[in-house]
Design a protein around this nucleic acid. Structure first.
Lengths: 136, 136
DNA sequence: AATTATTTGCAACTTACTTGCAATTTATGA
DNA sequence: TCATAAATTGCAAGTAAGTTGCAAATAATT
């Protein structure tokens, strides 16, 4: 059984070709992806655009993927991996490619920053921007 | 002379009612704002929506405002204040209101994180999420 | 295998934002 | 200060990412 199929079953989602293809794509790439990235694949030829969007919503609701901020107008998503800690991304200022950074240990200091203005911290989002090796 | 008018002249932008109204609104509020916020004001009644968008672009190009990430589908902008250092925002998870946090001293550790994956840091974006005093 | 529940493809729709153009307003400079 | 040039505005129509209704197809359940 494919890994994607196991995940779908575990999350009680019907196993369809569209979903398997889409989820395998996320698993294979293992980085934030938007519909733009998926449109480039041959898999997309066999899948309706609305199915893509509907399945992305289902995956997000099921906690399989999460949305991440982007440098363009297309929403990006990445796999939620339980064995991976909360982490951040670095986006190339030149080519806009996105890479995952290793674990983040910043919540403690952020809690302090939040409480200074009377907020109770529930989470944070951090994106670094830089020039990637290929563009340097 | 209004403060907004002085800014517009300094940036060599024509001084029009729309621009003065819009910029005064940013100055008065002094927090990230989207077209949603502006639509709530009576000023908006006298101003075309396309003027709002066009002037926001002009202001951004002139470095008067900058765009900030949002929790909804409307783009938000905030005043660029030279006397204010690079800083971040905290967004209420309940009411989605946005507040500015004080100065950020994180670039040094971020540079290290970036160089670990071979990137040269050019900037970063950080949003905290929490529950604001009003919603608590 | 038959029934029920879910998903898919398609086309039409929604909506934040953009754009072309003619009319109006603002800046320029004699 | 007034005529001219340049920029901005209002309006209506257009874009494009994402959504939705519905009937047909596929998957889950018994």
């Amino acid at each position: 059984m494919k890994k994607s199929e196991a995940i779908l079953r575990e999350k009680r989602l019907s196993v369809t070709k569209s979903r398997v293809d889409l989820l395998e794509f996320f698993i294979k790439k293992n980085q934030p992806l938007s519909i733009l990235d998926f449109k480039k694949t041959k898999l997309f030829k066999e899948m309706n655009e609305s199915s893509f969007y509907r399945n992305v919503i289902k995956f997000e609701e099921a906690g399989i993927i999460r949305s991440v901020p982007t440098a363009n107008e297309y929403q990006s998503y990445e796999l939620v991996q339980d064995d991976l800690h909360h982490h951040h991304h670095i986006i190339c200022s030149a080519c806009k490619s996105v890479k995952c950074l290793t674990e983040c240990g910043l919540d403690k200091s952020f809690s302090k920053m939040a409480s200074k203005v009377g907020y109770k911290l529930t989470g944070h989002s951090l994106e670094l921007y830089g020039i990637c090796p290929d563009c340097a």
